[in-house]
Simulated assay, not measured.
Amino acid sequence: MKKSQLTKGEFGEFYSGYIDRLDDEAELISSLQDNTEEMIEFFKSIPSERWNHRYQPDKWSLLDMVQHIIDTERIFQYRALCFARNEQKALPGFDHDLYVLNAGAEHRTGAGLIEEFKAVRQSGIYLYKSFTDTMLKIIGNMNDVNASPRAIGFIMVGHAKHHKDIIKNRYL
């Protein structure tokens, strides 16, 4: 399944900024796999003394940022699973600032978060490999926005790329 096969109505306008970060010919599973390696290598390149850095006092640290990426991966994977199983109820949004505030990332290490990201993403790849083409196209509602599991997979990749760019531009 390629990004170019997504149709109107499979994701909200807000998520276009994430999906547009991928080439039209990007394939779903290989994009998830390649992005996993890309993110792990990038995270490993961050000097240990930078993990607690905040580019402004009121902004997230790098530990917070990576924890946010992990939390968001889990939430998107849950949403994709619900939609693939034809959940009819709308799924709620989440307050990412509240999640970061309560995650305790300041007690974590960069190495620990890298391993957790790898495990969470790998779990998501297995989940996506289990979906049939029909499952990938089922539309559900998340936070008052319609989305399909296949769109959510591309959103996950774009979300990680988005935060990688923020880290490169503001933290390193």
Results as ranks from 00 to 15, higher is better:
I46T: 03
K44W: 00
D20V: 00
S31H: 12
E37L: 15
S16D: 11
K59C: 05
L32C: 08
S31T: 12
I75C: 05
K59R: 11
Y55F: 15
L28G: 03
Q77T: 01
Q56H: 05
W60Q: 08
V66E: 04
E49P: 06
D23K: 15
I70E: 07
M39S: 10
G17S: 04
F76Y: 14
D23N: 12
W60F: 09
R50F: 12
Y15R: 04
L22Y: 04
F11H: 15
L22S: 01
R74V: 12
E41L: 14
D24S: 12
G17C: 06
Q77D: 13
G17V: 03
D58Y: 04
V66A: 10
I29R: 01
R21Y: 06
L22H: 09
D71L: 04
Q67T: 15
P47F: 01
E27Q: 07
P47W: 00
Q67A: 14
Q56P: 00
D24Q: 12
F76H: 06
Q77N: 14
F76W: 05
R74T: 13
D20M: 06
L62F: 04
E49T: 09
R54L: 02
E27H: 03
L62C: 05
I29L: 14
F43P: 06
Y18Q: 06
S61M: 05
Y55W: 07
D64N: 14
S16Q: 14
I40Y: 03
F43K: 09
S45D: 13
D71H: 02
I69Y: 02
M39Y: 00
E13I: 12
S61W: 02
K44I: 01
F14R: 13
R21K: 15
N35H: 07
F14V: 10
Y18H: 08
E27T: 01
H68Q: 03
I29Q: 06
M65V: 15
H68T: 05
F11K: 10
I40Q: 11
S45W: 08
D34K: 13
I40F: 01
A26Q: 04
Q33D: 11
S48A: 15
Y18F: 13
F43E: 01
R21N: 04
E73Q: 15
P47V: 02
D23E: 12
S16V: 02
I46A: 08
S31N: 10
S30N: 03
D64K: 01
H53Q: 10
E73T: 00
K44S: 14
M39V: 12
T36I: 02
I40P: 04
A26E: 02
D58S: 12
S31W: 12
R50Y: 13
I29C: 04
F11G: 08
R74L: 10
D34A: 14
Q67P: 00
E25A: 12
E25M: 01
F43N: 10
R54T: 12
H53L: 13
A26K: 06
F14S: 07
E27V: 11
P47I: 00
R21A: 13
H53N: 08
L62G: 03
F14G: 03
E38Y: 10
H68G: 09
Y55C: 02
L62K: 06
L62R: 02
